[in-house]
Design a protein around this nucleic acid. Sequence first.
DNA 1: GATGAATGAGTTTTCATTCAT
DNA 2: TATGAATGAAAACTCATTCAT
Lengths: 230, 230, 230, 230
Amino acid sequence: MRASTRVQPKPPSRPRKPSSRTASPAAAPARKAPRQIRSRATVDAIVDAAARVLRQDGYDGTTTNRVAEVAGVSVGSLYQYFPNKEALVRELLERHDRAMWTVFTDQSTCAIGRPFAEAVPAVIDALFAAHLVDPQLHQVLHQQIPRVGALALLHATSVRSRAVVEGLLQARTEEHQRGDDVPTAALVVVESVEALIHASIALPPAQANAVQRHASELVLGYLGVARPGT
Amino acid sequence: MRASTRVQPKPPSRPRKPSSRTASPAAAPARKAPRQIRSRATVDAIVDAAARVLRQDGYDGTTTNRVAEVAGVSVGSLYQYFPNKEALVRELLERHDRAMWTVFTDQSTCAIGRPFAEAVPAVIDALFAAHLVDPQLHQVLHQQIPRVGALALLHATSVRSRAVVEGLLQARTEEHQRGDDVPTAALVVVESVEALIHASIALPPAQANAVQRHASELVLGYLGVARPGT
Amino acid sequence: MRASTRVQPKPPSRPRKPSSRTASPAAAPARKAPRQIRSRATVDAIVDAAARVLRQDGYDGTTTNRVAEVAGVSVGSLYQYFPNKEALVRELLERHDRAMWTVFTDQSTCAIGRPFAEAVPAVIDALFAAHLVDPQLHQVLHQQIPRVGALALLHATSVRSRAVVEGLLQARTEEHQRGDDVPTAALVVVESVEALIHASIALPPAQANAVQRHASELVLGYLGVARPGT
Amino acid sequence: MRASTRVQPKPPSRPRKPSSRTASPAAAPARKAPRQIRSRATVDAIVDAAARVLRQDGYDGTTTNRVAEVAGVSVGSLYQYFPNKEALVRELLERHDRAMWTVFTDQSTCAIGRPFAEAVPAVIDALFAAHLVDPQLHQVLHQQIPRVGALALLHATSVRSRAVVEGLLQARTEEHQRGDDVPTAALVVVESVEALIHASIALPPAQANAVQRHASELVLGYLGVARPGT
DNA sequence: GATGAATGAGTTTTCATTCAT
DNA sequence: TATGAATGAAAACTCATTCAT
């Protein structure tokens, strides 16, 4: 006779404030892919502005309104392309990591075939070089971004460069002395080198260079590889 | 080589109300030196509560009201002893560093007289031990606290342990091979060891132990010291 | 060796925007119970202001900021006592229903013992009277408040008066002719009477009175009860 | 007796941008009378989409952008044909009412010549039938749409069916006992029946049918007409 | 001294509406 | 005419800090 229909619109009907984290902000819908040329430019302007603001004001000083302002667009436009602040930062992070990764692979791949005592420093230098893509931004991204929360970030470059080092060590076990525990060795190498890189960012150029040289020696000594010149 | 960039954002990072009194919150006068017993007890309660809240809820989840509540006092009391949130965190940080320093010196001083190949691992182990004082809190303090803002923190333990290492290396140049650049060597040693410590905090116990052992070997190799058992 | 501690502060660390509905807004913590006299006054001011704004501007026109302004307090104070807008409205609703229920029971209980043909009109009149507590507010509360969402309201008075009617019909089945389906009869009675009440709110007094008289006759006819004067 | 209060809030309830053209959005000129076939098709698509979205997401979940998307057109096109959101909803409302009215008249006109005791139930059943045109949409339209604002809706079917009932009662005063106040009687009849219809929408079919039967008896009893079977 | 109620600027996010293409 | 990118006022809610009691 009558439809037992019940209007049951999605309970909250519309999460006014997705709480910037209502459900799983990480899974927030990628909102919209810019199709026209104009919108692509807008997206770039926004991401660039985000980088600028992040560099200058740090993570806490970065507000979506400020980013939009610096980008020369309205907040509305920002939210047209990024469902929330986190998604914006994630996009920036991904771009940054992509750039770093490009530099790293460009410089390291050619070195892998060379003798171990040369390959290792080459890889380490490549890692140093990758961090020079945008050291200021890198610092903010890696030191200030909430390690907690939905984006307990990917640090793609770290992870992937560890994989590269692990592969290298695994493939040539007879050329070094850490074959008994390669995963730990890779961790030790990458973590210490990264620490030295981050430390050197804040150093005057001269000492930064010294640190970079020492980084190679640190690793070679650890791996039990005779240094080239010795 | 590298940019000597430093993130230097809007000073107080969050001066909601321009604090009619504290122009530079970092230099804010410790509102009051608690002399009476009750005051001292109150201050302790507040700092302890801050530690608890920080550990549990992370930096963002830590509000002055919550800290006061957990401490069992009113916000007003909190502000009686700390001119602002930052000062409270700084106090906590200092206490934490003092505790770590105590552990470190307790364990390392006795080792200094011993042969180099024993002294170095002892110092490193002392550093590891020091980080076990309160790893959870340590992590929050070092990863989540805005490195920017008036308190671009002191990391006293890092700084002082570097001095200790530097002193050690300087005093016994003939027992190792880094005498040509002791300051850099100290930096390299302390930075990489700390990185390994921080990494090991998130590791399962077994691998954490492996990492600790490797840390000593890393450093001994770098310093060109024959390992004890060899 | 090392604590496998992991700083895992509640994922979202702090639902910045409980989304006004993040989890179950209905279950939102009742924030704080006012202890001092001052705060009780504040709460009353807020609820009163909410009633005023609701009456004047309707549900959509009611913003928390406006309510606070009208109450002569800051938004912060409002949120000190009510976790979100919904909770405020719910409180108002409860107060309103309590007031209506008081009027209804005051007027209806004494009538229950009387002969059916008198008791029924008395109950109906009591229902009319209850709606006069604050007709304007009642209208907003019952017509404009989202029937969907966490608060698909309680309409306590409706529900409870239906129970009263059902009890009355059940207790005296031989005095009317709807004993075969008392629940439906109660529903029919209460729903139609309420509809007439709501309609009469918008009517000029004269016709409103006529409607009220007819309401009793409607119900008596339906129940098959001879009217008093006949 | 009762306050002739009427909620009369800030007119357009949400005039985001003071719409440089539409002073009174209610009176906004139907931006364009679609004469061409394509236009008509577009308008239909938009209105149909509005109905779908309204049914699914409720009033709050309905945004003009979403409607356009579902309709497969751009927002721009939507605003080509409707000066604002309200106009769109009004159009939908009118269509819905027209459909209901068609059903109502189809079913009720043939019954008007029959004896009173049959005509009345026929009219009531026609009213029930009319509400089955789109109960979900009907519910949203009548419960969620801001009753305030420029469109404090027309409820055309209600109004017109009251006229029909009033005409019926007026024309055959000697067949019932409410001849002394026909307008009130018509109001009473239509308001209570509509209330029962709305209540029955949310009921399980079995009880909904019971309510429908009782509706006729309620009205017949009120009008003092002997029921057919009696 | 202690208390805790009050403050309000600032943050994220939404969505009706416009207008350049 | 259609498109869809852009706009920006406004809403809900937070939290460091103050100050009357």
